[in-house]
Design a protein around this nucleic acid. Structure first.
Lengths: 297, 297
DNA sequence: AAAAGTTACGGCATACGTAACCATG
DNA sequence: CATGGTTACGTATGCCGTAACTTTT
């Protein structure tokens, strides 16, 4: 199970073609064929069906492991590389959309106004991608958001050793269209909305399956799916009545719909700062500034 | 970062010697030396200090990744191997000590009394080792115990795709020596015991750091450490006054000390059945029987 | 017949063992 | 000087590309 073989294995299944995988990896088709043959020989099973290219049951099983394995390899390499050379000029912050609300934006403004002329780059990504970027060194720091019981940590996938710090806890809200019957309420219960129309926007708002998990209730049927990290598009859909979305109150209040706080169950929208085990130089500085400005009630 | 190189790297640091690692792996010292040199060349850093053999900072960092990586490789391989050949005769159950209380023992007795003449092997291990064994196919099923808020799942390390099912929820108790001032109480609060004398028995009782996490309080100072999976030894220490230990009430009641239920915070001792994604044949049967007999209040 | 995967084979790189060579206690 | 890690070198294995072969649509 040489990582090279695993890498071409996932490339083959991603491209659903040996030759496409070959050119993507800079190999020859023949080499790819040999790689797959070697893997199959090693594991004693056929892994991919050819013509058309598709995973066998065993191949599908391997696909549940291989990407994570390759990622962890990159993580380990990046972790070691970070010990030595650091990029003191550009500072990259990976950020999930709902994490970059007024509170964090203000903290960044504070940071900007200090003497340091930092070249700051912000990358908006889905939650897992934020963690991936931090672990593989593509970002120096990450901000992820999610929902949890008050002062509970967010359940983040453990792809490697990271440090997470609470950056902010905010009231959770549901974004309603103005003409919704509940839009004039002072607060709502999530358990009253399990059969409402919901937008499934897993990378932008709170994912519906997370709502189910945290409420321990089935429901929250997705009426429309929203992919990507565009909060404004999501807000447009929500206010036009396509469905509801759960968001932090301070942020939702800026989006033009009716942002109604969630009263029950007792939940908070949480923002956590994710950084590698050894943040050095400006990354550490920025971490200190953000957590210094943290608004954890 | 060839897995072979990583494997010899951890062997070298485990044995604190190139030659010992070599003979353990069936290599020559020279090969081990070349492996380490290759790894260091690949990562561009010195990883181990020689004479005496010790990790450099970068090596220590790599040691945080390498064992997990190698384990995941084994897990992936085992996962695929499981698809094909199954051991229908012998059934192996990995079990953390406090999981094998009266309830589970009875469930196993039920199973035994059925028509199937199963050759059952039970392996007592620490919690992480149970999961390792299940994932790498050394065990067909695992039973892990832990403490959590009622109907919350246990926080298990995600080393790979597993299915976990609640097998039982039991009252949590603290095991006191009979002459302890609190030994006659009907119930105790954990928060009143944060400064008591505790036994740190992470593989046998509830680990003290887990108590801290779940109570969100510092404290529970370890007075004595107890390693291994021997419940009777732990009970002997506890009843002799060496310190307190948190255990499930039904099990603690059989151990000879004073088992006092924990009233606050509201916690339960939970037993979860861990099995690979595709339990087949007798493993699935046993899983059904155990969860069929499950006592989840 | 064309597109796409496999097999055969040759050159180059790599891996491991033997043995000679340092370095440290 | 002895224990233990390194370097040099030869052989064996393995990897990848070219090219001929096979299979499927």
């Amino acid at each position: 199970m040489d990582p090279h073989l695993l890498r071409t294995f996932v490339a083959v299944l991603d491209h659903r073609s040996f030759s496409a995988a070959a050119s993507a990896l800079g190999y020859t088709q023949s080499a790819v064929s040999q790689h797959i043959a070697a893997l199959e020989a090693d594991l004693g099973t056929r892994l991919v069906e050819r013509r058309p290219v598709a995973p066998t049951p065993a191949g599908a099983r391997l696909m549940e492991h291989a990407p994570a394995l390759l990622l962890r390899l990159d993580v380990a390499r990046a972790d070691i590389a970070r010990l030595h050379h650091t990029h003191p000029t550009r500072l990259t912050l990976a950020c999930s959309p709902a994490a970059l609300g007024p509170a964090i934006a203000q903290a960044l403004a504070c940071l900007r106004s200090t003497a340091h002329p930092l070249d700051l780059e912000v990358r908006m990504l889905g939650r897992e991608a934020v963690i991936e970027d931090v672990l593989t060194g593509r970002a120096d720091l990450g901000l992820v958001d999610g929902v949890a019981a008050p002062s509970d940590p967010l359940p983040l996938p453990d792809l490697g050793p990271t440090t997470t710090l609470a950056a902010a806890e905010e009231t959770l809200a549901v974004l309603f269209p103005h003409n919704h019957p509940l839009a004039l309420r002072r607060s709502v219960r999530l358990t009253d909305l399990t059969q409402a129309q919901w937008i499934d926007a897993p990378d932008t708002a709170i994912p519906l399956d997370r709502l189910r998990a945290v409420c321990r209730i089935d429901g929250f049927p997705p009426r429309i799916r929203h992919r990507g990290t565009d909060l404004h598009g999501l807000a447009a859909l929500a206010t036009a009545g396509h469905g509801l979305a759960a968001l932090p109150l301070p942020l939702a209040a800026t989006l033009g719909g009716a942002a109604i706080p969630v009263k029950e169950p007792r939940l908070v929208h949480r923002i956590e700062l994710v950084h590698p085990a050894n943040p050095t130089g400006p990354a550490r500085q920025l971490a200190d500034l953000i957590t210094g400005a943290a608004v954890v009630q």
